[in-house]
Design a protein around this nucleic acid. Structure first.
Lengths: 89, 89
DNA sequence: CTTGTATTTCGGTATTTAGCTAAATAACAA
DNA sequence: TTGTTATTTAGCTAAATACCGAAATACAAG
C-alpha cells in the first residue's frame, strides 16, 4: 500500500495513470506526451509497476501499459478509511 | 494538490492523519505514538501543514493539531477523477 | 526574572529520488 | 547476419528527504 502512495506522489506518474485510465498505451506513446527523456519515463513506469498500478504486455517490439484500476481504487478506499467516508460509488 | 500527495506518501504522516481524524491531539501526544525523535515528528507536521492537511491552535504552551478533512477529501476526489468513479458519499 | 514544559529551528549526515546520456537488450525485417 | 525500432539498464550527478541531537523559542508559573 505504501508503494502505491509513493507512486502517486509524483505528478508525472499521476498524469501517466490518467492517460492510461482512458486507454492502454505503449511506453513510447506515453513518453511522447512528456518533455522528459525516455529513460526517465521508463523509471516512472518501473515505479508504477512496483506499486502494481500498471500491467504490461509486449506486442512485438513495443510494450503496452495498462492501468490496474482495481489497485488504484484500493488506494482511494484507503484514503476514505481515513476520512471516514463510506464506500464511494 | 501535489503537496497533498507528497504529504500522503509517507506512512508516518498517513498514520498521523488517521489519529487526527479521530480527535485533535497535541504535538507531544502525537509524537508519543511514534518511535521517532520529536524534531522528526515536527518535520512531518510541517509537511502536513504545508499541504494544508492540518490546522493548528496554540493552547498555552502546547499546540493542538486538527486534520482538515475537507482537504483530504479533495485528494480522494482527485484520485476518483482518475479512476472515473463518481462522487463518493 | 528565573525555571519548567512544549515545540520548533538549526546544523549535520545518510539515503533516496529524479533526471540525464550512453550502452545494452529484445523483437523483427531484410 | 545486419540493421532498425522500442524499451530498459547502467552509471552518474544534483537535489530532496528523513532522521538525529543540540540549541532556540514561546508560554506559563512562581
Amino acid at each position: 500500500m505504501s508503494d502505491v502512495f509513493d507512486a502517486l506522489a509524483h505528478p508525472v506518474r499521476r498524469q501517466i495513470l490518467k492517460l492510461l485510465s482512458k486507454r492502454a498505451m505503449s511506453a513510447g506513446d506515453i513518453a511522447d506526451k512528456f518533455d522528459l527523456a525516455k529513460p526517465t519515463l521508463s523509471g516512472h513506469f518501473a515505479v508504477l509497476k512496483a506499486a502494481d498500478l500498471v500491467s504490461t504486455e509486449r506486442q512485438g517490439t513495443t510494450i503496452i501499459y495498462r492501468a490496474k484500476m482495481s489497485v488504484l481504487e484500493e488506494a482511494v478506499a484507503g484514503l476514505m478509511a481515513i476520512t471516514g467516508r463510506k464506500e464511494g460509488r
